[in-house]
Each structure stands twice: as C-alpha cells, then as structure tokens.
C-alpha cells in the first residue's frame, strides 16, 4: 500500500518516538492517520500496518474492534459525533442526538446517501465543561443546542 509523502513522513517520525523494539506502540496512531487518508480501515490496511510493525494481523484486528474511532466502512465527509456521556446527557446530549438523527435522516454510525454526513453517538470527548459537545471530524463545537446544530449542519452543507 502506498500513502501520501506527508503521511509517510509522519509515520517515520512516529516510529522514531518509540524505543527500539517497541515500534508496535505506533499501532493506534498509524491506523488512525491512515484511516483519514483511506477513509476506512480496509483489510489491505490491516495487513500493511501489521507488516510495518511486525505484529500479527489478528493483533491489529483486536485494536480496531476495541476503538470505535477506527472504522471498517468509510464514514461521511463530515463525521458528526454527538456525546451522550454523563455531562452531556445532563445538559441535553441525548435529545441533541435524537435531533441530529432527525435532521440528518440517519441513525447511529450511518451515512447520508450523498456521502456528505455521518452520525455517531460517542462517549466522553473530554469537553464536559462545555457540554453538550459535538465533534465534526477533528473540530469541536461546544454548548450545542438543536438550533446551533441546524446552523452548523446547514453551513457545512453549503461548503461542499
């Protein structure tokens, strides 16, 4: 598998971060950044990462199964993540998630037919002070309300 030169450079840097013989520590970030480029963790990617880090593919599978941020299917261009963990739940996260489902017309871990949006109910993102929180790709949106959510989605939709 080939990646962009930037990503290759990033991998090379990451591998240097770990002491010799402990390169398998790079497993999670490698999968995460590769996924950003390939859209999802494909079987080829599993094999590739296993080869690069000298681990068995089944060990890569274990990590993918454990971390929900690693996905086997591509998500939308904008991956909308709504937290429903305690702080967000207390401040309306659950209603917000239901609202998001209606607004986007999709359910948890689903993608809109045009491939623009996907939705995911996530656990704590560490943004409790600004609950309820929503994350779109790597960007945080704080103190979310249904109205602000609609505006956010509409502005993203215009950006396409």
């Amino acid at each position: 598998m080939t990646f962009s030169p930037e990503l290759e450079a990033r991998f090379a840097r990451m591998l240097r971060n770990y002491p010799p013989g402990r390169q398998k520590g790079a497993l999670i970030p490698m999968l995460l950044y590769a996924q950003d480029e390939t859209g999802a963790v494909t079987p080829e990617l599993v094999q590739e990462v296993a080869n690069r880090l000298s681990v068995k593919p089944v060990e890569v599978e274990e990590v993918i199964g454990f971390y929900s941020m690693l996905r086997r299917k591509p998500m939308g261009k904008y991956h909308v993540q709504v937290c429903t963990n305690i702080s967000c739940l207390l401040t309306g996260g659950e209603e917000l998630f239901e609202h998001a489902c209606r607004k986007l017309g999709i359910g948890n871990r689903e993608v809109t037919p045009d491939g623009q949006f996907s939705l995911e109910e996530v656990e704590c993102m560490g943004a409790c002070s600004w609950a309820p929180a929503v994350e779109v790709n790597y960007d945080f949106h704080h103190k979310m309300t249904p109205e602000k959510f609609d505006q956010l989605i509409d502005s993203l939709a215009k950006r396409q």
């Binding site: 068995k56 089944v58 060990e59 599978e61 274990e62 199964g65 454990f66």
Partner: peptide, 9 residues
Amino acid sequence: VTALGTQNR
C-alpha cells in the same frame, strides 16, 4: 502462533 485475538469490548 498468535492465532487468537479479542474483538470489541
């Protein structure tokens, strides 16, 4: 052999 692993949580 490392033929077994754990999936999900």
